[in-house]
Amino acid sequence: MKLTLEVWRQKNGGDKGGFSTYELEDVDTHMSFLEMLDVLNQDLIVGGAEPIAFEHDCREGICGACGFVVNGVAHGHQKGSTICQLHMRHFSDGDKITIEPWRAKAFPIIKDLVVDRSSFDRILQAGGFVTIRTGSAPDANALPVATDTLEHAMDFAECIGCGACVASCPNGAAMLFVGAKISHLALLPQGMPEKAKRALKMVEAMESEAFGACTNYTSCEAVCPKEISISGIARMNKDFRRASVAGAEPAHGKKR
């Protein structure tokens, strides 16, 4: 299979950057998208050129390291998968593929397709701790959680923080990510005590980063490799609204 790749190249954050075009012969249909880039990079290295920088780690679609925009769609056109799980059999001979990094003010480009997603880390840090007992493992049934509830929480916990939601949002909003993080803890008894405080802190942290605001385009859930639902955004809004009205401090029964 023969492919023409149009890839965004940028030396560093200060560089203006631009597209470079590469012709690639004999692409195996069994290759994953990243393996195809590995082959291209090998050619570049042999030819004395700088290889294309892209992030990757597990290549199993569960770590959240990889991700860029392929032909206008974050993680490529295959639903519910990261770019490392997209295989070249989904492309045809002679295709022209445009590859761009996540584009958002909150995700500054480090090099080529690698962006700095530490804005996500700062939001997570703002969420604070969860009061669980550390030390020896607790008794299996000490804290009963209904199967439906834990499945619901797990659906949100699946978020790998790849940033595709921000990349795909016409507004560059991070609400699916923050909604998933808030929801997965708020649904479980372990995360319940800090629910209000967490919603306030994480939404505040999100607002202080350079993300846009949600206008319900829903393209985030359409590209999410974990297919996380925008119901997480609704839950975040609800928790934030309640916490804003009632305050983040726990209620108390004595005059203080």
Binding site: E6, F19, V69, N71, G72, V73, A74, H77, T98, E100, R103, A104, K105, A106, S168, C169, P170, N171, G172, A173, A210, F211, G212, A213, T215, N216, Y217, T218, S219, C220, E221, A222, V223
Partner: peptide, 25 residues
Amino acid sequence: IWLRNRSARPVKYKMFQPPGLDYAA
């Protein structure tokens, strides 16, 4: 909101076809 969202993506995509958008949105 419009101003905030405009500034959230200073460099535009060359090719941007986010799925899931409906006409009204």
